[in-house]
């Protein structure tokens, strides 16, 4: 089996004596959607931030196609094909929508032809972004801002996309659009690592699921095995 990302025995924390992550091992298979669930404060977002070099692990290593990327700074990881859609906004509110779309393309070194092509693709898919392209990103509604963040993914076409709670605080209509997009990313060569509170949706979308509790992986397995009796299993894992 070909692993795109392998995080091995990661122990990390924000301060000296407190390990938020303890011996966390996660693998993402090329061409798959991998999910992670857990209660608030379980360490899910901390895990992604550790992969992205915001936290240097005290122990363990992270491999991207066998290439050791442990502790590498985020702006370098972006060039290696990783992308991160965090729960909080990653937009630049006082720059235009078009600038928000274009800034990452410069970083990954696309040619002007590729940039034009991808921008046209994004504008065809999201005509509302094209209509407002000269407006500040901060002027958009919460749902539209989320769409813009996902449109940025279409501009960079990463190899591996980390998505943290993509549908929190947005309307069901846009949430449905986002879940459709996540599936489409896979078809465009982007593997996905998804953190979501919507357990049913997460199990439906993903191929493999990790369950995290108090900084540890307490269960894992193919999503298909969680399809039935999901609620009971989750309650058992999380000790509820």
């Amino acid at each position: 089996m070909e692993y795109l990302l392998e995080a091995e025995h990661i122990t990390a924390g924000y301060i000296e004596d407190v390990d938020v992550l303890q011996e966390v091992s996660v693998r993402v298979i090329q061409g798959s959607i991998t999910g992670m669930i857990g209660l608030n404060g379980a360490g899910k977002s901390t895990f992604v931030k550790t992969v992205f070099g915001f936290l240097k692990p005290k122990k363990g290593r992270i491999l991207l196609e066998k290439d050791d990327i442990t502790g590498i700074e985020p702006h370098i990881l972006i060039r290696k094909g990783l992308w991160y859609l965090p729960q909080e906004s990653s937009l630049f509110p006082h720059l235009t929508i078009e600038d928000n779309l274009l800034i990452p393309t410069r970083v990954i070194g696309l040619s002007s032809y590729e940039i034009r092509d991808r921008l046209e693709h994004v504008y065809t898919r999201f005509p509302e972004l094209k209509a407002n392209r000269k407006r500040h990103a901060g002027d958009l509604s919460g749902g539209q801002q989320k769409i813009l963040e996902f449109a940025k993914v279409l501009m960079v076409k990463p190899r591996l996309l980390f998505i943290d709670e993509p549908t929190v605080g947005i309307s069901p209509k846009i949430a449905a659009e986002i879940y459709t997009m996540i599936q489409q990313f896979l078809g465009e060569g982007t593997s996905v690592f998804l953190i979501d509170h919507n357990l049913r949706k997460l199990v439906d979308l993903t191929d493999y699921v990790y369950v995290m509790s108090l900084g540890r992986i307490v269960a894992e397995g193919p999503s298909s095995q969680f399809q039935d009796s999901l609620k009971e299993q989750v309650q058992r894992w999380l000790g509820l």
Binding site: F52, F54, E73, P74, H75, I78, R79, W83, Y84, P86, E88, S89, S90, L91, F92, P93, H94, L95, D99, I103, P104, R106, V107, I108, K152
Partner: peptide, 24 residues
């Protein structure tokens, strides 16, 4: 310019700039 916009980006959202690949 690109670098000017990168400066604005870091000023507006430092975390967002890092994950947009900008070397702060």
């Amino acid at each position: 310019t690109y670098w000017g916009k990168a400066v604005q980006a870091v000023a507006q959202n430092r975390f967002g700039a890092a994950i947009a690949g900008i070397d702060s």
